[in-house]
């Protein structure tokens, strides 16, 4: 039980994530992917006569059930499988972040940025609202996210998924190293 409660090493977690691909295929010919659920939510709630959202979203309801499962699984981990220890990070990162007055490692996301009181500040809007918008817009424009392209697409040796994955990483590198330091100073 103790080793389950500790953070899992990459060589345990990675292969388990990889097994999601055959698991969903065997369950019902479903391709592993999460970002489509955002499109299905649009199609279900506000299609507004936009052709991109006019399709039989009810046929894709498995995907919405799947993401509901992610929320439930994360809650179960938090309640029963967690040792409630702070996140251990590289000391270089900790040094850098302390310069931005970030020192709370008790949650998986830094509580100094991701909290309700911050939501309507410039920094909060950038990190929580603009960041989320880019995730939703970018993944749909790219036709998939880390799971749909980087895991499922690459598993099926799709070169467009490799292009997408390289661009995900390139965008992340540019943002984290060259732009984010300015945003963190706000």
């Amino acid at each position: 039980m103790h080793s389950i409660q500790q953070p899992w090493p990459w060589y345990v977690a990675g292969p388990l994530i990889g097994l999601m691909v055959p698991l969903l295929l065997f369950m019902g010919n479903k391709t592993f992917g999460v970002s489509s659920s955002l499109r299905h939510l649009c199609a279900a709630c506000f299609p507004f006569d936009i052709s991109f959202f006019k399709y039989q979203w009810k046929k894709e309801i498995w995907n919405l059930v799947f993401v509901a499962g992610i929320v439930l699984g994360a809650w179960l981990s938090y309640q029963f499988l967690s040792d409630q220890q702070p996140v251990q990070v590289n000391s270089k990162l900790a040094n850098e972040l302390s310069g931005y007055r970030i020192s709370d490692y008790s949650h998986l996301a830094p509580a100094e940025i991701f909290n309700w009181n911050n939501l309507l500040t410039v920094k909060g809007l950038l990190f929580m609202v603009a960041g989320g918008f880019l995730v939703g817009f970018g993944t749909r424009y790219a036709g998939g996210c880390t799971s749909g392209h980087s895991i499922a697409g690459l598993s099926n040796l799709q070169w467009p998924s490799l292009v997408a994955t390289i661009c995900f990483m390139a965008g992340g590198f540019i943002m984290a190293n060259f732009i984010l330091p300015y945003l963190l100073k706000l």
């Binding site: 955002l38 990190f127 603009a130 880019l134 817009f137 970018g138 799971s147 661009c167 390139a170 965008g171």
Partner: peptide, 21 residues
């Protein structure tokens, strides 16, 4: 879109620290 959207998602991933899952 895999290039333009991919880069935009990369920006968002680094800011929020999260992809859709």
């Amino acid at each position: 879109g895999q290039i333009y959207g991919g880069l935009l998602f990369g920006f968002g991933w680094a800011i929020t620290g999260a992809c859709p899952g």
